[in-house]
Write a protein that binds this DNA or RNA. Structure first.
Lengths: 183, 183
DNA sequence: TTCGTTATTGAACAGCATGTTCAAGAAGGA
DNA sequence: TCCTTCTTGAACATGCTGTTCAATAACGAA
C-alpha cells in the first residue's frame, strides 16, 4: 500500500504543481510542460505516473474528501450541507483550484453526480418512491447546491458557510418536504 | 448590416462545422484544422473571421435564441421555464452540441448567468427585497434549472418538456413562494 | 553495509496544432 | 464594367505532446 518514497514525492510534487498553476493561469492554460517544470520532474517520469493533465486532476479527487462524507441518514434533511461547506471553507486553495471557474470542469461534473446519488438515497430512505420524476427533482437539488458552491468559490469565499446553507435550505427544502409529506 | 455574401457563407460554414464536429468528437477534441477541413475554408480565411475555436463557439450564442426571451413578468412565477424547454426540444442538435457535456463549458456558464439575472429581476419585481441572501437563492434556482437542462440534453432528450417543467417547479417554487409570501 | 530492485533523468524525436504572412486570384456589388 | 473586398494555399516559426533509451540514482530488505 505505501509506495516507494520516490513515487510519493513525485506524485505529490506534480499534484501540487497542478493546483498552483491552476490558481495562477487556470486549468486550461496549464500544460504538461508547465507541470514538469514546476514540479521539477523529468518528462519521462511524468508519463510514468500519469497519462494526462486530466489524469493528474482526477488523482486529486481523493484529496477533496468532503465529497466522500458518509450520508448522515438521521436527523434533519440534507444534513450534509453545512458540514460540507465548512470543510470546503477550510480547503479554499484546493477547492478553488479544482472546482472553480478556472478549474477543470470534470470535477464539478463528478461532484454533481456524487451529490445526486447521495440526495436520491436520502430521499428514498425517507419514503419517497423511486421514479424518473423523483430523479429529475434530485437533479434540481444537486444542481442548486453545486451552483451555490461554484459561485462561492469564484467569489473568493465571501459569505459564510451558514449563509450558503441557509440559502440552499430556503430554496429547496420546502419543495422537497412537500414531496415527502404528500406520500 | 447585411454582409458580403462570401462572408456569410464562410461564417456559416464554420459555425455549422463546429456543431457537427462537436457532436461527433466533443468540443474539446475539435481543432481549428478540423473546422477548416470540414467547412472547406482556407486557414487564412478562418483567422480573418475568428480568433479562436472559442470565438466560433461564442458566435453561435445568437442562434440559441431561447436564452434571450423577454421575461414575461405577468402571470405565474418562472413562466420562462416551459417555453424555454419546448424551444430547446426543437433545437436538439444545436442545443446538445453547445450545452451538452461534450460541448464547451463556456456557454453553460453564460446561460446560468443570464438565467440568474432574469430570475433575480422577476423576484425583485414581485416584491422581494434585493439583498445578498436573495442572490444566493437566485443562484440555487438558476443552478437547478441549468442542471436539469444539462441532464436532459446529455440523456438525449428522453422525458418531455412538461416533465422537466414540473420537476423544476416542484423543487423550487415552494421555497421561493415562501420567500415572497413572507414579505 | 551490501546488493538487487525500482524509479528518475535528460535528451532526442516524430507528429501535430497553432497563428501569421503574403502574393495571386476569384467573387462581390454599384 | 471596374474597383473593392474576400478567399486561397502554401510556407513558416513556435510550442506542446507522448515515446524511447541508456545511464544514473535512490530505495529498502536482509
Amino acid at each position: 500500500m505505501t509506495m516507494d518514497r520516490r513515487v510519493r514525492r513525485t506524485r505529490q510534487a506534480v499534484q501540487r504543481a497542478l493546483v498552483d498553476l491552476t490558481l495562477e493561469k487556470g486549468y486550461e492554460a496549464v500544460t504538461v510542460t508547465d507541470l514538469i517544470n514546476r514540479a521539477d520532474v523529468g518528462r519521462s517520469t511524468f508519463y510514468a505516473h500519469f497519462t494526462d493533465k486530466q489524469d493528474v486532476l482526477l488523482s486529486n479527487i481523493a484529496e477533496i474528501d468532503f465529497l466522500h462524507r458518509p450520508p448522515s441518514t438521521s436527523g434533519e434533511l440534507f444534513a450534509f450541507s453545512l458540514p460540507m461547506l465548512e470543510h470546503a471553507a477550510e480547503q479554499q486553495r484546493l477547492v478553488k483550484a479544482l472546482l472553480g471557474r478556472r478549474g477543470g470542469g470534470v470535477l464539478v461534473a463528478r461532484g454533481e453526480q456524487m451529490l445526486a446519488t447521495m440526495i436520491r438515497d436520502e430521499l428514498t430512505t425517507r419514503g419517497a418512491p423511486a421514479s424518473p420524476s423523483l430523479d429529475l427533482v434530485v437533479i434540481c437539488v444537486a444542481g442548486a447546491f453545486m451552483a451555490l458552491l461554484r459561485q462561492w468559490v469564484d467569489g473568493d469565499f465571501t459569505a459564510t458557510p451558514t449563509d450558503l446553507d441557509t440559502a440552499f435550505r430556503t430554496a429547496v427544502i420546502p419543495g422537497v418536504a412537500a414531496l415527502l409529506g404528500g406520500q
